[in-house]
Write a protein that binds this DNA or RNA. Structure first.
Lengths: 153, 153
DNA sequence: GTAGCTGCAAAGTTTTTGCAGAAGC
DNA sequence: GCTTCTGCAAAAACTTTGCAGCTAC
């Protein structure tokens, strides 16, 4: 995702290119798979622009969501989290997440094996899938080995 | 999901059987595929128990979540929603949802075609999947035909 | 120059918590 | 009877909004 494309997309949509918007994009780009919250983005943004406000972060994230430049994900911890939407633009499929129910760690998955499911949904319901979000819950390798070593879950 | 099982599970866990807990279970059981919010459950509960408090609903939902009697789902509209966890108990897989990005309607799906994906995740990451949540975004049949008839998305 | 954006402050909304009395076991 | 739970009230936490000055173009 290069910066020129972001600027172009903003202009095409009648929006203005501002340093704050580029900064949020850059922060998300430089923290892949971090699933940052608005507050975490805010803290990172303050490092180079101490005068920035959390409200601006929220407004910026909404703009970037509308442009499908980023995705919002939710891991049930009370925070909305954000990640870059690959290089996909409006039509891309986001990747999946595996969430360990013991340690809470989140793994990002690149595989995309939902084509069969999506086709079936289209045939049965007439529902045309354009995007999907998959969350797998379970135990990661480390937590599984702790469990085997005698600890209780 | 019968009421005796719920009572039994509560007692086994050292928790008390209260009318409020049974009521929330009954409300969720009698509104399948409704994906009720805490506030909606609260409103329904008030019909028979006007003195009940929203705080009680939240505390009850947390208890039922801990017992894996219900699931929490999120459709990005700012509300947490709740549904019965089938008859599965702790090990069951919840069903999937297809969310129309135009009209917002949510369809529940029963198909379960993620076995391949889960196996692959186990082999590659050592991550043992115990549950999953799948959200498909797209256009439902009605919204697709409106679109074809000349309306803009 | 004009429209849109940001900083600042305040408010809104959903959810959580403290405490005393009530209910379950 | 002792422990847990609920109602009530207040607070906490995340997010949104109003407005005046500033910035992009």
């Amino acid at each position: 995702m290069n910066e020129e494309k972001v600027k172009e997309l903003l202009r095409e949509s009648g929006l203005k290119v501002t340093s704050q918007r580029l900064m949020v994009m850059n922060i998300l780009a430089s923290h892949p798979d971090s699933h940052l919250t608005a507050e975490e983005i805010y803290d990172l943004a303050k490092e180079s622009s101490p005068e920035i406000e959390l409200a601006t972060i929220y407004r910026t994230l909404q703009v970037l969501l509308d442009l499908h430049l980023i995705n919002k994900v939710d891991f049930d911890d009370g925070f909305a989290r954000y990640e870059l939407n690959g290089e996909s633009g409006a039509s891309g499929h986001r990747h999946h997440h595996a969430i360990c129910t013991k340690c809470g760690k989140v793994y990002s998955l690149e595989t995309d094996l939902l084509d069969t499911l999506e086709q079936e949904v289209f045939e049965k319901l007439g529902f045309m899938v354009t995007d999907h979000e998959v969350k797998l819950y379970g135990l990661c390798r480390e937590c599984r080995s702790e469990k085997t070593n005698g600890k209780k879950l």
